[in-house]
Computed example of a mutant assay.
Amino acid sequence: MTKAPASSDPAGEPPHYLGHRERLRERFNKGGADALADYELLELILFRAMPRRDVKPLAKALIGRFGSFAEAIAARPERLREIDGLGDAAVVELKIVEAAAKRLAKSAIEKRPTMSSFAAVVDYCRATMAFLDHEEFRILFLDKKNVLIADEVQGVGTVDHAPVYPREIMRRALELSASAIILVHNHPSGDPQPSTDDIHLTHQIIAVGKPLKVAVHDHLIIGKHGHASLKGLRLI
């Protein structure tokens, strides 16, 4: 006697979620990501890691824990594994999507004058930092034509502080023969408004760079709901 496939129910019928998967894929093909809720987009990713399981409960659990699609894929692997039933394969799939988003955003600012593609710079910084649960301080090093030489994280910290050393920043700028830099850091609280400390630190870095002829073009603060530019706010 021929046995029913392991993925079928006792009556020999295909699992209910297979039809659901096909319907989701069809909606995505016709309407793109805008046609899907955040948890449904997560389902599409989880399908690859869990071909024989209904992943809707997991996708909804991710949204319940982290709040949105972007925050879920940006979450640290150890936090993702706190979701019951989310294994290593699923975590890898989510982090691949995050890496792809960052790579696409970065490609928009590479080999182009950075200051003439400011919107792309902001998009890249948001893709990279907006949904982190800790503070990072990033430097974009630019050449004489304002083309990106390097993008480096100079400090990683807690939910509200990352250690930053102005002289170390300038030492690295000289090593790279950078003529200018853009400072970038995130506020995990979500509010991108600069603090008094943010402004003070920026002026310290400007002062250290001035005799070395390394200009500070801007200091961007990235939040979940937007960004702030100290140059745009006329604070530098």
Rank of each mutant, 00 (worst) to 15 (best):
A100H: 13
T128G: 02
A105N: 01
K102D: 14
A59H: 03
E98S: 07
A105R: 01
R48Y: 06
A100M: 12
A101Y: 07
P113N: 11
R79G: 08
A72G: 00
V92A: 03
T114N: 10
Y124S: 06
G67E: 04
G64N: 04
L140C: 06
E136W: 06
L104P: 08
M129A: 07
K102S: 13
P57F: 06
V97K: 05
K106F: 09
A90W: 00
R65L: 07
R52A: 15
G64S: 07
P77Y: 13
P51G: 15
A120W: 06
L86G: 06
K145P: 02
F47R: 09
M129E: 07
V121H: 04
K102H: 00
D143W: 08
I83N: 09
A49N: 05
R112D: 09
D88Q: 10
V55Y: 04
A75K: 00
R52N: 15
L44W: 13
P77T: 07
L41Q: 14
E78L: 07
E78K: 05
Y39D: 13
A101R: 06
E78C: 05
C125W: 02
L58D: 14
V92Q: 11
A74F: 01
A108Y: 00
I96A: 11
A61V: 10
L142N: 10
I45T: 05
A74Q: 02
F131W: 04
D88V: 11
A49F: 11
P57Y: 14
G64I: 06
R76G: 13
A70F: 01
D84R: 04
K60F: 01
